[in-house]
Simulated assay, not measured.
Amino acid sequence: MRRDWLETLLLVFLSAAIGALGWSGHVALLPAALFFPLLWAKAEDRWTALLVSSAYFLSASRGLPIGASTYFAADFWMGLALWLVSALAFVLIHTLLWTARHGWQRPLRYSVVLVLTGLPPFGITGWAHPLTAAGVLFPGFGWTGLSMTVLILSYLIARPGLRSALLLAGLWLWSAVFWTDPALPKGWQGVDLSMGASLGRDPSLRRHTDLSALVLESYGAGASVIVLPETALGFWTPVIERFWQNVLKDRAVSVMAGAAVVTEEGYDNVLLLLDSQGGRIFYRQRMPVPIAMWRPWERFSVDPGGTLARFFAKPVVKISGTRIAPLICYEQLLLWPVLHSMFYDPEVIVLTGNGWWTTGTNIIAVQQASAAAWASLFGKGLVTAFNR
């Protein structure tokens, strides 16, 4: 009995360590997440599978308690509660689909796990998905590389042992040696900001003047397409549109910028394309942050609020002759938004985020590492613009 408990504690410890290492925010360390299914398969019973899954997910998402507490201006206990609730779907799926049977049963069941944790509705909190590491192992292989990663996971689960672990470690080492960061497309420039919680909440002319100065600086340096972070422009109004139209007048430059647009049911978190002709919405966020932004229960109240979720809305748009896949903030942590976009074969992935609330965490680093892995897997350019 004591030996069984020691083995369980070892599996839990290793699972937590893998979650912390793989989701540290360093793209080269993402393949550590592929060891988690091996540990899940090594569990001797359903109780151990629950503990192993909990340790991995909670360790991987360890920035959430602090981030949520900051966002809601609440005490740490509220952040802790949201952290635990966010783990429920991931842990429940891994616990219920675990089996003591060997052979093809485990790989088959884990394939179901990969789908359920990657797609809505459970995939809404499907962070720390092991398949994100496919881009590190098989850069440029696209859907074939993703399929090969699934086959590797199936082998690890079917034969969970030292030989499988060494095989994965060797493949990981090989990929690290040949890793190169995704390229920034020529003429494109992402602008990172350090404006804290004031970004998007300060509607003053001075704020827009400061932002326009940064845009013109990038334009002067040769950029023809400039990206500003999520909600950089705040609530979009005709007055703000005229301001930016005057700024960009007679200049051959396009600006992508985040904003909020009021609707009858709340608001949309959008990306706008600005040029000398004015501004237009070209992307509406498919998956906002649950609870913080997306509160579907409010649609049935007399005073609806929050932003809408458009799970499978338009995933790719053409800007300045280039097909792009925009991903706003929370979408960068999930599986299906990026795969949905890749199905339409864009040329560039554009990331925007307003992570003022992530101070003291590695959440932005994890978002950027995940996007770099996907861009590498499918051979796409990558442009990022974040506010801290």
Rank of each mutant, 00 (worst) to 15 (best):
T263L: 00
V348K: 12
T48M: 07
E7H: 11
V261W: 00
R163Y: 13
S61F: 14
G196E: 05
S204A: 09
R299L: 14
P337W: 05
Q367A: 04
A260G: 15
L216E: 10
L82K: 02
T237F: 04
V150Q: 09
L272Y: 04
S301W: 11
Y344T: 12
L38Y: 10
S224N: 15
L211F: 03
E331V: 13
F343L: 15
S301G: 14
A372S: 12
R46T: 09
E264Y: 05
L64Q: 10
A369C: 12
N269I: 15
R286G: 08
V136E: 07
V215M: 02
L88K: 01
L274R: 00
I157T: 06
A259F: 09
L51W: 10
V239A: 05
F76R: 09
L233K: 00
I363M: 10
G306D: 04
G142R: 13
R310N: 11
K380D: 10
M287Q: 07
E230C: 03
I240T: 13
T263M: 00
R101M: 09
A16P: 00
Y110H: 15
L271F: 07
L193G: 03
M1I: 08
Q105E: 05
A372T: 07
W356S: 10
Y267C: 01
A292P: 00
L88T: 13
V91F: 02
V253T: 12
L327Q: 11
M1S: 14
G123E: 11
P31M: 02
V255I: 03
M148N: 04
A81G: 11
F35Y: 14
T263I: 01
P185I: 02
L10T: 07
D45W: 10
A221P: 01
E347G: 14
G278I: 07
T70H: 13
A223C: 06
F312P: 04
W172F: 15
G190K: 04
